[in-house]
Amino acid sequence: MNRWLAFAPLAVLAALALLFGVYGLNHDPKVEPRALVGKPLPEVSLPSLDDGRPVRLADAARGPVLVNVFASWCAPCEIEAPVLVELKRQDVRIVGIAYKDAPPNTEAFLARLGDPYDARLVDRDGRAGIELGVTGVPETYLVGADGMILDKHSGPLTAEIAQAMLAKAPR
């Protein structure tokens, strides 16, 4: 009996490996949850990075506007920063949401890489991210003039992806 107990951890490990293997073979890693596309922007309020006062996301993101969820600790966010700065130069409105980040770190990040945002909001505990369906950072949402989410992109924006998104919103 004791001999069989010695093999129990190995049996559990083999069962888990089988479970994850079957899941991995049947799971498409490129699937992006886009549950909110076609729906209104969630009713959430976030503190402003500038003064800490609460701001309704719907008020800050009067479209057409890109809502970019980013963090100072996010390497892909650094990659997309020049694209966002260039979009700002082209008069594209962008609202930034600092996700699970300390405001001093966010301020240093923006000072170092450039600040492309018309409004800078802070989602310190990630609750607004849950409402938005954030799966990771960076993520960018296109919000139309009517407050509807028209598109979503997960990962760093490129100029081409940004232009394709913006083409979906009448200006």
Rank of each mutant, 00 (worst) to 15 (best):
R171G: 06
K152P: 01
H153Y: 09
F7N: 06
V55N: 14
A81K: 14
R62V: 10
E86I: 03
Y117P: 01
D151C: 04
A8N: 04
A111C: 10
N105F: 04
R62Y: 00
I94G: 14
R120F: 13
A102Q: 09
H153I: 11
A8H: 00
V67C: 04
L84W: 15
E139F: 05
V85F: 03
A14S: 11
A58W: 02
N2H: 04
A81G: 04
A169V: 10
W4E: 13
L113K: 15
R127T: 09
L18F: 12
I97C: 03
V67T: 07
F70K: 02
V44L: 09
P103V: 15
N68D: 03
D50V: 05
P116M: 09
M1S: 14
G147V: 00
N2C: 09
A14N: 11
A162H: 12
K100Y: 14
S154C: 04
Y99I: 02
R3K: 09
F109C: 09
I97K: 14
T158I: 02
R56P: 01
L5E: 00
Y99S: 06
A71V: 05
A102G: 05
A75C: 06
P103E: 14
L150E: 08
A75Q: 07
A6N: 00
P40I: 14
E131T: 00
D59K: 13
V143W: 14
A75H: 13
V85D: 01
P82S: 02
D118T: 15
L10S: 13
A15Y: 02
P103G: 15
L113G: 06
G114Y: 12
G63Q: 02
A14T: 10
G21P: 01
R34S: 08
S45W: 10
V44K: 15
N68M: 08
A119Y: 15
E32F: 02
V137S: 12
A14H: 00
T135F: 02
L132P: 06
V22G: 09
L13W: 04
Y23H: 06
G133A: 05
I97A: 02
L57T: 01
L110S: 07
V92S: 13
R56G: 13
M148R: 13
A119Q: 11
N26K: 07
R171H: 13
N2K: 01
A102N: 08
G52N: 10
R89L: 08
R62H: 08
V92Y: 08
I94N: 07
Q90R: 10
V37L: 00
V67N: 01
G133Y: 08
P76A: 01
L166I: 01
V83Q: 00
A128Y: 08
R120D: 10
Q90C: 06
V83C: 10
A167V: 02
M148N: 08
L150H: 02
L113D: 00
D151R: 07
A167G: 06
V137P: 12
L87N: 15
A98F: 03
G114L: 07
P156A: 08
T135L: 13
A145W: 04
L110Y: 04
A17S: 08
I94C: 09
E107Y: 05
A111M: 07
V69N: 10
D28W: 01
A164G: 15
L57W: 00
P29I: 03
A128L: 04
M165D: 15
Y99D: 07
L166F: 08
S45I: 10
R171Q: 02
D146I: 12
A167D: 11
E160W: 00
A17Y: 03
G24F: 03
V12N: 07
R124E: 15
P116E: 10
A8R: 06
